[in-house]
Design a protein around this nucleic acid. Structure first.
Lengths: 220, 220
DNA sequence: GCACGTATAATTGTATACAATTATACTGTT
DNA sequence: AACAGTATAATTGTATACAATTATACGTGC
């Protein structure tokens, strides 16, 4: 999220991840170190490191002495991840209600103010950015390094789906209004309510995809 | 868990992780590629790959061009992880109640039968092994690749703490009886009950550590 | 024509070599 | 003696070289 690490090695890592999430590398496709290295203009060494990291993230399967293969992500996988994430975001909001600072609350309110503006204008790029930031603030205000770590991982993982869902203007409007309610609960330090709202907020994303169909998410 | 991957590279990875979790490498300690390579009798290449993987797991922080440092794990971190895990194990048990097969139920019952035996005998090594297996079966019977993935990660992360808690015989007895109740709920396919019981089961571990003090977990 | 075995090529796994960066020690100046 | 600047060493980052393994192609026997 915040960590600006523009070394060559991490650039390779993120590029490959992006290519998997965007669908440039197809599911089950074999990722050859030499080929990717040539594509990105680097040697096999940083590519190998990246592939092994991506394996831990679950985006790639490595069969020793054979190769690295893109792990396909199914509709069910996305559903599962969202349901898992909804529980975690709920717990995160609960903790945030207990630990959030005045400054963090202020930034959340500013975030919502700006989101209203950009949703109105239909700037989906900025809306996505603000949504990212909203949840990032929540992760930080939970006061838990572990919670932050796991949710940031998920966030990366779902980046692809989120682009689609927030582009739908109707969902964007609802999403911001849900954010507003969460912030209200945080201001009252009402942990149970914050948990419930954050939980529902994530599940609404899935319901939204269900009602609009999954075609946008997968095929074009 | 199940994945037998005894390549040199993954051996290095697990050895370093073990050394961090066991405390051989102290918090904030700088891990030098050359030194570790010599310790393990390998070159820098596999060590580098391992360190970058460990960074993703959150056990190591890498500052580009400077070095890799062991991330200390605090009492609060462990608490947080257990609370996060309790929610996830709850959701996992809920899903398991909906998807578990006859064969998996049979293996769970056999697992409990054997656990009773080894708890009686005081074989903490076997008890730990059976406990690992019990939860592994649950992860598989959830029918969710994503759920399995995330819980296996946590499981590794907490291996160190779990050795201590299950060595306490009293906790071991309670733990097995909680397992039994979870299996009963699964047999009835009572998702809500299974979730509640699994959730409480994990939280009880933390309560147990609290009541016995944290000294065993950290210092000797 | 097909199965099998072997030779060849391609790919991964590991070690080493070199480049770039950072840390350390030394020297001279004030 | 304290400090700055520079040279040296140590360490990380990347590329390449070699070893081990796996995939492929080819030829031989049937």
């Amino acid at each position: 999220m915040g960590e600006d690490n523009y070394s060559l090695s991490s650039r390779v890592f993120r590029t490959i991840r992006e290519n998997i999430l965007s669908g440039k590398y197809e599911p089950e496709e074999e990722l050859k170190e030499k080929t990717i290295g040539e594509e990105l203009g680097v040697s096999r060494t940083p590519v190998r490191e990246a592939l092994r990291q991506l394996e831990l993230e679950g985006l790639v399967t490595i069969i020793p002495n054979k190769g690295a293969y893109v792990v396909g992500i199914s509709q069910k996988d996305i559903r599962d991840i969202y349901e898992i994430r909804s529980r975690l975001e709920g717990l995160c909001a609960k903790w945030a209600a207990e630990n959030i600072t005045k400054e963090q609350l202020d930034e959340l309110e500013e975030n919502i103010y700006l989101s209203d503006f950009h949703v109105e204008k239909g700037n989906s790029e900025q809306v996505l950015e603000l949504d990212n930031r909203f949840h990032e603030i929540l992760y930080n205000s939970s006061g838990s390094r572990e919670m932050r770590h796991i949710l940031v991982d998920f966030h990366h993982y779902l980046q692809r789906v989120r682009k689609v869902t927030l582009a739908e203007n109707k969902r964007a409007v609802n999403s911001v209004s849900e954010h507003r309610k969460i912030v209200e609960a945080l201001k009252l330090h009402d942990a149970e309510l914050a948990e419930k709202l954050a939980n529902e907020h994530i599940m609404n994303t899935i319901h939204n995809i269900d009602s609009h169909g999954w075609d946008h998410v997968f095929g074009e």
